[in-house]
Design a protein around this nucleic acid. Sequence first.
DNA 1: ATGTATCTGAAAAAATTCTTTCATTATTGT
DNA 2: ACAATAATGAAAGAATTTTTTCAGATACAT
Lengths: 290, 290
Amino acid sequence: MGDANLTIADRIQDRLETLTRAERQLAHSILENYPASGLGPISTLANDAEVSTPTVARMVQKLGFKGYPEFQAELREELKAKVKNPIAKHDTWAEGAPSGHMLNRFTEAVIDNIRHSLGQIDTGDFDAACAQLADTSARLHIVGGRITHTMAEYLFLHMQMIRPDVTHIQSTSNAWPHYLLDVKPGDTFVIFDVRRYESNTLKLAEMAHQRGARIILFTDQWRSPVHRLADISFSSRIVVPSAWDSAATTLLLIETMIAAVQDLNWEDTKNRMQTLEDMFDQTKLFRKFT
Amino acid sequence: MGDANLTIADRIQDRLETLTRAERQLAHSILENYPASGLGPISTLANDAEVSTPTVARMVQKLGFKGYPEFQAELREELKAKVKNPIAKHDTWAEGAPSGHMLNRFTEAVIDNIRHSLGQIDTGDFDAACAQLADTSARLHIVGGRITHTMAEYLFLHMQMIRPDVTHIQSTSNAWPHYLLDVKPGDTFVIFDVRRYESNTLKLAEMAHQRGARIILFTDQWRSPVHRLADISFSSRIVVPSAWDSAATTLLLIETMIAAVQDLNWEDTKNRMQTLEDMFDQTKLFRKFT
DNA sequence: ATGTATCTGAAAAAATTCTTTCATTATTGT
DNA sequence: ACAATAATGAAAGAATTTTTTCAGATACAT
């Protein structure tokens, strides 16, 4: 790769004076639509700049590249780097820790996952899923697997506060077939299934589907086989510098959904919460603390 | 040129369902480094996506282009247009959703929480906590409350894969006093306690402390009363535009810690994981899926 | 289980792109 | 003004890239 920390644009700018007439013409043309113009064929660039192809080839060599393709390769690298940091110039998240520290590397990866995952979300799907979760005329079943049952439980605990008729099923439990006995057409299933997709979860989804349930799926970027049965799917990126996967993006989605559903039927939720508060007061589960 | 006002990324996203396995793999690779990856030679793209060149050629035709060069030309046009409008400030995380949409407001808040929480972390404390979790000479007890038991469970499931002698205690369970019977001085307690601090959790912490256990606490910015008993505390910001609090930052910390601990005694962990894999293979819990 | 349709990639063929050569044109110093 | 030097682009040649073909692999329906 070329000089460190110096974009090609910078390098062209620096050498602008030393260039010949045709080359300067070309340089301006490159900078005009940077970097797009440099990423096309050499002849297109030459035409746009109204110079000949050899002029381009020669100048690129003057700039220190072996040839036009190498020049393009570096332009693409620049672009890649630029797209990656529109916001995350936050190189070190944990101040005081070196950027190579796990805290920084991991956080970086998670933020990146969030950015990618959110960027791909279909807002319509999201809103539709929220509406479905808020629909109290349909019963709600939440399903998780070996690891993901924690996410399922988290969603369950909150949904339980927001609305009635919510159950949490663990696909790894032997009891799950019993839950399916009472499933009626129109019931909603929220299913979590990420990498190392579980056969039980798939079977459960199939049976729920067969019984006419509507399925909302939370999965990873590679998508669980359940997605073919799902009405709505959400894919989160889960790759982090670890032997395991990250559930952080998934949790973010869940929490956002909880907040959105809560907004949808706030009147009901408010009452339920008040009742819950009263009951907690009586059991003295929570400590009054200033 | 292609469809008006619809980026190639959008079009790929839309048709993701109709694509075949290899094509979807390719699609993800394109979106991963968009648009840079699509601007190089077809064979580079194919290699990065781990598919064949013809697959790329076929897919761009499916997307409505005459050939790869035409596809690239439109990518360059998009890039040109995008560079011209510097509106692309990243305050909308879910593109296509208005910045007032819950997806964007919530994500913004979570990122902010992460930034603040990570900024205040003492790296020394973090490393010390990791070392303690990795120390297999001390038994490890993980404790959570009404909501936080999901986080506790998440940590438990991973620690269980990494090291022996890990237990998960729910402070809301009646059974927790029994767990304390066997606690020895030097044992480690990881305790989760966030807003609406639970009296049970505090009592449990006090008893553990009395018996000479070392306490690592995960709490919120206002800090649970347990922090006075804790050797190490981590405070996460938890405020989001919702009636409830966010566990996202806490989960990020947990996951980072898991990754760091795993690095500390990787040799042991590797063996445990292999054994686990073998056992899973025998139970056929996971589905082999391509 | 069997046959059919679809998907996939290796390799060859076609097309394009990049580089080099070389003759022509412009520039500079004397 | 003239020679020497440098710059430039047309065109041929070299290299690479893209497309097509085709056979094997895979998924799917019966």
